[in-house]
């Protein structure tokens, strides 16, 4: 996408669907959404103590089991993966030329046009 440097559409040029997501660029709104998720999480966590759930497996019925599993499993997987990367990451051309990792995808199989250029005559 070499052409994209001078092609930076303003907010008004975007489709309404894209504008509906432009809040993701505002750090204050994102912060507020994060607080919202945190509040929802807290609510769900408290609810777990008030309401009896069906449980079959050991500890499954313990209040907070799923909340804790969600947080800890996520952290463990991501941190474990980071540690694993330290061990197994190799340069992109490690298997070259017998793999596609360091190859670029053939341009003939793509149609790389920039925003608002898709009304080109051949399209």
């Amino acid at each position: 996408m070499k052409k994209s440097a001078q092609n930076n559409p303003t907010n008004a040029q975007l489709t309404p669907l894209a504008r509906a997501f432009s809040w993701t660029e505002s750090s204050t709104v994102v912060q507020r959404v994060i607080y919202g998720v945190a509040a929802l999480s807290a609510l769900l966590f408290v609810l777990d103590f008030l309401i009896h759930r069906h449980a079959y497996a050991p500890y499954e019925g313990t209040p907070g089991f799923y909340a804790l599993t969600g947080f800890l499993a996520f952290s463990f997987i991501v941190l474990g993966a980071s540690a694993l990367r330290w061990l197994i990451a190799r340069p992109e051309n490690y298997y070259a030329p017998d793999s596609v990792d360091a190859e670029s995808y053939p341009e003939s199989g793509t149609e790389q046009i920039a925003f608002n250029q898709d009304k080109a005559p051949d399209a």
Binding site: A38, G70, F71, V78, R90, Y94
Partner: peptide
Amino acid sequence: CFALLAFVYLMKVGLHPNQIRRVNL
């Protein structure tokens, strides 16, 4: 929700692995 919170937390403290051009064995 708690997985999402963990993601936000790990991004905040910079522990989430960034995306780099590597292959993995």
